[in-house]
Every structure is written in C-alpha cells, then in structure tokens.
Design a binder for these strands. Sequence first.
DNA 1: CCCCTAATGGGACTCTGGTTCCGTTAGGAT
DNA 2: ATCCTAACGGAACCAGAGTCCCATTAGGGG
Lengths: 206, 206
Amino acid sequence: MVDEPSSPGTVRPGGRTARVRAAVLRAAEDALVEHGFAGLDLGDLAQRAEVGRTTVYRRWGSTTALLADLLSDMAEQSLPRTRSGSLAEDLRANARLVRRTLADPRQGALFRAVLVAANGDPGTAEALRHFYRRRVGEWAPCVTEAVERGELPPDTDPFEVIRAVSAPLYYRMLTTAEPLDEAAADRAAAAAEAAARAGAYRRAAG
Amino acid sequence: MVDEPSSPGTVRPGGRTARVRAAVLRAAEDALVEHGFAGLDLGDLAQRAEVGRTTVYRRWGSTTALLADLLSDMAEQSLPRTRSGSLAEDLRANARLVRRTLADPRQGALFRAVLVAANGDPGTAEALRHFYRRRVGEWAPCVTEAVERGELPPDTDPFEVIRAVSAPLYYRMLTTAEPLDEAAADRAAAAAEAAARAGAYRRAAG
DNA sequence: CCCCTAATGGGACTCTGGTTCCGTTAGGAT
DNA sequence: ATCCTAACGGAACCAGAGTCCCATTAGGGG
C-alpha cells in the first residue's frame, strides 16, 4: 500500500511552518499594495519574507493559490455586524463598512487582486464565493428583522438586499475613476432600502 | 532636429497592416473565450493569426495593451438604445442588453478580461472608463426624459440611475456562481427604478 | 534529552516568454 | 511602372520564472 505524499505543512503545522506562512502572507499583502496582482512574483515574495524560494513554490505553487489562502485567512476574522434596530441605519453601516474596506489601500488592493485572480482559477473563485456567502450571511439578519417588524414585504430575499448595497460600490470602483466617498456609500444604502420597500427583492415575482 | 520614431502601423494604416490587425484581434477574442485573460499569450496569438511573432510584440507589446485596443474597437460599434417612452420599459431593455452581453460567451469573456487587465495597467483602465462613459451616456437620456415627464424628481442624476441598473449584474457575475438570467436583469431594472422614484439618486442630498 | 523525519533552503538546471537583428515583402506616392 | 521605405517575419539570442536535487535545520512524540 502506497502512502499518500501529503502536501507540505500539513503534518507539522506549528512552529517554523507557521512562521513561514505568516511571513509570506504578510509579504504578499505588501507586494499587492505596491505592484498589484499583475506584479506579484513568488520569487520576490520569498526575498521579502526572508524565506527560501523553493519553499514558497512548494507550499503554494502559484500566485492564485496563495491569494486563495490569503482570502480564507481573512474570512476567519470578519467582524460582526453592528445592530441598531433600524433598517436604514443597519444598511448604511454595512455600506460604510464595505466602502471603508474597498478604499483602504491594503484591503482594497487585496480585494481587487482576488477578484482578478478568481477569473481563470477555479480554486480562487470558490474561495471568493465562500467569502462572500459568509459576509452577506452575516448581514442578512438585519433584513430579516425588518421584515418581521413589518417594514418590508414578507417574502423579501435578505441576501439580495445586502448584495444590492455592495453592488454599486464595486461597480463604481471597477468602472470609474471617481473616489469611493461616504456619500456614495450612503446613496447605495438608501437606494437598496427604497427598492426593498417597493418590493423589488421579493422572491416570487418582482 | 530628430524625427520622432512614430510607432508602427500609424504611417500606413491600410492594406496589410489592417489585415494583420484584424486577424490578431480576432485571434485574441478566440483565445480569451478558450483560456481567459490569464492564459493569453502573444506568441500563441501570432500563430493563431498566422502572423509573425515579432509583429505582434512590436505592435502591441503586452496583452493589456492589446485588450485596450480590442475594447476601443468595440466602443465604436455600441448599438443605439431602444426608445419605448416608458421609464420602466427603457430600464428593463437596458438591463437585458447588459445581461445578454455579460452572459454571451464571447463578449462576456472579453469584459471579464478587460476588467481584470484594467487593474494595474493605467492605459487599459483609461480605455475602460472611456467605454463606460460612452455606454452610460448613451442610455442616460431615457432618465432625463422621465424627469421631464415628471416621473422622477427633477434633480435626479441620470448617470447614477443607469449605473444602478448594471451594478447588480456585474456584482453577481463576479462574486457568485449563480447564472445571470433574465429574472436577475428585470429585478435590477425594477430596483433602480424604485430607488430613483424614491429620490435616492438626487444630486444634492439623498 | 534523543531521535526520526517533516520542512526548509541553496544552487544548478531547464524551459519559455520576450527582445534584437537583419533580410524580405508590399503600400502608396510620384 | 518605379522607387522609397513602412511594416512584416524568421532565427538567434537573453533573462528570468519555475523545477529538481540534496544537504541542513528544527518540530514534537517518546
């Protein structure tokens, strides 16, 4: 019976292995901010992290795989949503959080890179979808509660409402040069709320 | 006085030069559909187009530059908007057009690729912004007309409304695995309309 | 504290994307 | 039809990303 060769880093995940991983992921973030995804080079990362080039290639193999790792790391530490008791307030808080994330040099660069890498690499795409399911699911309850309070039609799809808040911000970031300011965030939240109240996100028929 | 060396293809744009350009752009589209942007290789394109490898490198130099060229080519032939006289109808027509474009294997692949390439390459980013300004500007009048008919608040920003129609479709394409069906398009149009009626896209204060 | 072996890291090697050189082909002006 | 030269294209060349081999280091179970 032949033993499965088991990928490196799985048998002894602690100690040096953990330090190497942390150093490389950190270096990857730095490099992303500086050069973006296109300029990401595993050899360069090894130098920054003061780690052997061979190690980086062996552990991750490709820039997209490394990004997927980085993203799943980030998915762990998603901060809990705020709770204000008002739908308008909750959606605005969400919109501002998204805006702040995208506008932040470090996080914004990471998000752009992941969106980029998810095209063409199924593994990264799956990691990305997982991340958004989690993020959206975290905020969906504020819509459900609004429905229970009778503020929204009973068959409103909570996920769609939350996505509707983020969508304009991503679209603006990708297709225009205009800055992602707080006004844009508030507008996105207000629009989503108005559309939801009008029943645009009801499950059966719009 | 030293002559500017003028980039190739500018002095004799017709005849063979035009044929080469057409063949390469065509080959690029094919390759995009097959392998996506990540798998785009200028050497491979040269073979497909039955053109010298040197020529491709000399004329475009990089995959991103080639995409920018491809996009500006496409910007020319943007079809005129339909006119129905009803805001709801116009927005839905727009949403369906966008959806059809993104869902089309050929055009969809191209759009994803351009969005990807625009990160990190300023030239491509500029071409992309130009394209969207044009596209959005093409459809903005249907909002202006609705304002004139008194259907929407007078200080509604037409561009924001049109962008609001596209945004959810792009967001869905990028972050989920769910298909871009016609229902999603209609929902996007309905949501934008409802938000606009509620005054979410007024210029001064939401 | 020792031992076994997972994991790292240096360095040689390969393979391929991209450049350079220079001869050939063909636009288009006269 | 002729000529000048813009543009093309084959082939040799170069650099750097990714792989392989093997010696060295250090987890962590006993």
